[in-house]
């Protein structure tokens, strides 16, 4: 199967006053065309940075990205900013974590929705507006004409997220990054938004990278899962395979910490005892060692290498579950 997006040995460092912060470390990941890939991990594990870096959205003198990103035959990491920009909208698009901060507070929804159509697809102002209204209807926003004229602060959280989805899909992207599209919403709205994303993906034949820290969301919405820990992808497998036969102790811990029914939206997964290692000062051995119940001496001295099972299941652990127990 061909990959739509392939990320090879990508690392992202931020220069901070406290030194270099390695937010993403040597990530290798393939997003197969037409598939939905989940990215899970605790808060701060580098999910957002990985997605933004893959698209080339991290800018500024403090950002250093290394490695290779190939999207749909284009080697993004070898292209200029202007060339990559040509691929935005109709190639790649992104839904952001918080729809309130990701929509411009002083511009009307209609303007924010139609400008991509005008710039990327060359539509006229009135065509773009008409199309914007259709897009709002497509994401099931009632009273679309009025919403076009509103400002983001006048809409509810769920409506704002729908608007953002409408913006992201407006130019029919091949790949949609959805960065925690439901974290900021309450539970019933979460379900509606996930349903909407499933349908849109079906209709528009989009591939999707679905970032979440909720394994429950992953189970119902993805074909593959990448588990991130401390900036690394520590396990990658087809979703069914992962749940049936997980190899990483971290994934197991994550699964055991799946939020209870009374889990309120927005609460972070901090149920695994201990915390993520300091990203400016990572342990030499396995990053998970201080919190891992399977850890042995080797784990604290040697950084585990990536291993690939014959069936393509990838993980990064010296003592994977189901092997040396």
């Amino acid at each position: 199967m061909s990959s739509l997006l392939s990320i090879k040995n990508m690392s992202v460092n931020f220069d901070t006053p406290r030194g270099s912060l390695e937010a993403v470390r040597g990530v290798d990941i393939e997003i197969p065309a037409g598939m939905s890939v989940g990215v899970v991990g605790e808060s701060g594990s580098g999910k957002t940075v990985m997605c933004r870096a893959a698209m080339g959205l991290l800018q500024g003198s403090t950002v250093n990205r290394t490695g290779t990103v190939i999207f749909d035959g284009h080697e993004l990491t070898a292209m200029s900013k202007e060339q990559v920009r040509e691929l935005f909208g109709s190639g790649m698009a992104m839904i952001f974590q918080d729809p309130l901060t990701a929509l411009n507070p002083v511009r009307r929804i209609g303007v924010q929705l139609s400008e991509g159509l005008r710039v990327r697809l060359g539509m006229s102002k009135s065509d773009a507006m008409a199309r914007s209204k259709e897009l709002l209807e497509l994401v099931r926003i009632p009273n679309a004409a009025a919403v076009l004229k509103s400002f983001p602060y006048q809409l509810s959280g769920g409506m704002r997220q729908r608007v953002m989805i409408a913006i992201a899909i407006s130019c029919n992207p091949k790949l949609l990054f959805a960065d925690e599209p439901t974290t900021a919403l309450d539970v019933t709205v979460q379900a509606q938004i996930l349903q909407l994303l499933r349908e849109l993906r079906e209709d528009l034949k989009m591939s999707m990278v679905l970032v979440t820290h909720d394994l429950g969301v992953v189970a119902g919405n993805t074909d593959y899962v990448a588990v991130m820990y401390a900036g690394e992808v520590v396990e990658y497998a087809p979703t069914k395979k992962l749940f049936a036969d997980m190899r990483m102790p971290y994934t197991e811990a994550l699964l055991n910490s799946i939020p209870r029914v009374d889990h309120k939206s927005g609460t972070r997964l901090t149920v695994i005892a201990g915390r993520l290692p300091d990203p400016t000062n990572r342990p030499v051995g396995c990053s998970f060692a201080p919190r891992c119940k399977y850890a042995q001496d080797k784990c604290t001295t040697d950084h585990p290498e990536l291993k690939t099972d014959p069936d393509g299941h990838i993980y990064r652990c010296w003592f994977p579950i189901g092997e040396s127990l």
């Binding site: 935005f88 909208g89 952001f96 901060t101 990701a102 929509l103 507070p105 511009r107």
Partner: peptide, 21 residues
């Protein structure tokens, strides 16, 4: 702000982002 990154992800030029967003 996030809305600047969002505007970038729409494929807008820097000039347009600076002045309009």
């Amino acid at each position: 702000e996030d809305y600047v990154t969002m505007a970038m992800s729409k494929g807008l030029s820097d000039r347009r982002i600076l002045w309009q967003h």
